[in-house]
């Protein structure tokens, strides 16, 4: 007979976990589908909100930071400069905050049914990715309007940048989600943390503004992502492979630590949530 289930006291991590996630891929799809579907229920303009928010942020930032404060933007129009940054930034920040809360918001399911818990954070990042894809349409429109064509190499590294963002959001999110199960302080700290992070990430200003100290910014993985996204799409500078490598390494470590910690805490989720 196939399908033998063996239950033993849980170990921290095994490769079977990854296989299990693959078995449950349909559930991953359904959770993503649910989150997306539910979010815009009973709203008048529905999914347009996914576009409206980054668009309005871009307009306001352009007026205040671009036109009034005259923040340098590496010699490209400020709106498209800031929108490129915002696009990746919002994907990262919304995925991070959603992931950190995912165990709490699904506690009624966690305590009643078994499935690999990693599915939940993965699905919330996937939902945010759909938002990203929708609001990316505006960027494409702006590139036409301002007459920018991406380098061929740019199109190649965009998936890589998304992967880095994904790792950063999931890695950090898993860590926060695990803490959140026991200490709800995360709920209050995180919005504040994200706000601060926005200012130490070159979203509204170019990294070059920091002058000789700009290397400090490199430790922030989103710096590498946003700078290179601009380099690749708008040709502000040549693609900085060193910066990408640093970001990739930082995020890979973050992801591994996040997963290990999550698996360690996972065994008592259902008892504590």
């Amino acid at each position: 007979m196939n399908n033998v289930t063996i239950i033993r006291p849980k170990k921290t991590f095994s490769w079977n976990d990854l296989k299990e996630i693959w078995q449950y891929k349909e559930l991953l799809y359904f959770f993503t589908w649910r989150d997306f579907k539910v979010r815009y229920k009973q709203t008048a303009i529905g999914v347009l909100w996914a576009i409206f928010q980054p668009f309005m942020t871009m307009v306001i930032f352009s007026v205040f930071f671009g036109t009034l404060l005259k923040i340098p933007s590496d010699n490209i129009p400020y709106p498209i400069f800031v929108y490129t940054g915002l696009l990746f930034w919002q994907f990262f920040s919304s995925a991070l905050s959603e992931t950190s809360n995912v165990l709490i918001s699904n506690q009624s399911i966690i305590t009643k049914v078994y499935f690999p818990r990693l599915i939940l954070p993965l699905s919330s990042v996937a939902t945010k990715f759909v938002d990203f894809a929708i609001s990316a349409a505006i960027l494409v429109g702006m590139m036409f309007y301002y007459g920018y064509a991406p380098h061929l190499i740019g199109l190649i590294i965009i998936p890589l940048l998304l992967l880095v963002t994904f790792m950063a959001a999931v890695g950090g999110g898993l860590f926060l989600a695990s803490i959140n199960v026991k200490y709800r302080d995360v709920r209050y700290v995180l919005p504040f943390f994200i706000q601060i992070l926005l200012f130490i990430t070159p979203v509204i200003y170019p990294a070059s503004i920091a002058g000789k100290y700009s290397w400090i910014l490199a430790f922030n993985p989103m710096t590498g992502v946003i700078q290179n996204a601009r380099a690749a799409l708008l040709g502000t500078a040549p693609v900085n492979w060193i910066l990408i490598s640093i970001s990739f390494a930082v995020c890979a470590v973050l992801l591994i630590v996040g997963v290990i910690y999550f698996k360690k805490v996972e065994r008592y989720f259902a008892d504590v949530v």
């Binding site: 007979m1 399908n3 033998v4 289930t5 063996i6 239950i7 033993r8 006291p9 849980k10 009624s108 399911i109 966690i110 305590t111 009643k112 049914v113 078994y114 065994r267 008592y268 259902a270 008892d271």
Partner: peptide, 25 residues
């Protein structure tokens, strides 16, 4: 499988489904 045991072992031969609550999720 919602919560792991502290000791011991269970072997179940077949597809397992649970119904701890109607309308979960």
């Amino acid at each position: 499988g919602i919560t792991p045991p502290t000791e011991g072992e269970i072997i179940m031969r077949g597809k397992v489904a649970s119904l701890l609550e109607v309308g979960t999720g």
